[in-house]
């Protein structure tokens, strides 16, 4: 499905990703786990072409994403939920969703599908995105990415700063998309969240992926978590308060 082969990405002269390789299977949920600054967000940005790799390959099935200009990557049905949501705050909810539709260059809109997943947005269509609550903004950011009708969905800390009910809603959406066959890569700081949704977990450390494990293996290994996430990682308990 998605094959990342030894990519090297930089911010100006600072190298962030070093020969990072990753193989993501069709229809799976893969979580990227690692300390702050390890390169998780940059991995997603490199896939999206926002931080294009200077060397290496990113193949989505037979399409070489690393050779495409950034604005053509979304057209390959790659949806992106950036860290901090990055909505267009002065545009309305409807316009934000329309931007999602734009990437596919087709007349059919995914708006009804998005609104059925997040009905609360229906009453907010004419409201500016910047005036929504944090939870509503996350719904819109997710909905905007779904407007691309993605086969590959990239989500960067989608539960960051959300209340428990909202976290559960986002998790349900990810699980629902998995049932529809959508491949998802999620950057997540919360180990308990990872365990609930992930099929596999890729640890990111110093700009590379030293290890990929099944999510079930993670549950039994505090040593792995301590090594790659740090001793201060979120607890494994269920129903805990939001970060």
């Amino acid at each position: 499905m998605l094959l990342i082969n030894r990519i090297n990405s930089f911010y100006d002269d600072v190298q962030v990703l070093r020969d990072l390789s990753l193989d993501v299977h069709e229809g799976e949920v893969l979580c990227l786990l690692g300390r702050n600054g390890a390169g998780k967000t940059t991995t997603l940005k490199s896939i999206m072409g926002i931080v294009p790799p200077r060397s290496g390959e990113i193949m989505l099935d037979d399409t070489a994403l690393h050779l495409l200009p950034p604005h053509e990557i979304a057209g390959q049905r790659v949806g992106y939920v950036p860290q901090g949501r990055r909505l267009f705050p002065q545009l309305t909810v409807a316009e934000n969703l329309k931007i999602g539709d734009y990437a596919r260059h087709t007349a059919d809109s995914q708006r009804e599908r998005v609104l059925s997943l997040f009905p609360v947005l229906k009453a907010r269509l004419k409201q500016k995105a910047g005036t929504l609550s944090g939870g509503e903004q996350q719904m819109l950011a997710t909905g905007r990415a779904l407007s691309v009708d993605p086969v590959l969905l990239l989500m960067d800390e989608p539960t960051e700063g959300l209340q428990p009910s909202m976290i559960q809603l986002i998790r349900d959406v990810i699980i629902g998309l998995k049932k529809e066959g959508v491949t998802t890569i999620v950057v997540e700081q919360r180990v308990d969240a990872v365990l609930q949704i992930a099929d596999r977990v890729a640890f990111v450390e110093n700009g590379t992926v030293p290890m990929v494990v099944n999510a079930s293996e993670l549950a039994d290994s505090d040593a792995l978590i301590n090594r790659y996430v740090g001793v201060s990682h979120q607890p494994l308990a269920h129903g805990d308060p939001p970060s």
């Binding site: 999206m48 072409g49 926002i50 950034p70 604005h71 053509e72 990557i73 979304a74 057209g75 992106y80 950036p82 990055r86 267009f88 705050p89 002065q90 545009l91 316009e95 329309k98 931007i99 999602g100 734009y102 990437a103 596919r104 260059h105 905007r144 691309v148």
Partner: peptide, 18 residues
């Protein structure tokens, strides 16, 4: 709409095909 989106966040605009 594309102009306004680009004005507000060109990086995200690019990520959505603009």
């Amino acid at each position: 709409l594309l102009m306004r989106a680009t004005q507000q966040d060109y990086e995200t605009a690019q990520a959505f095909g603009i």
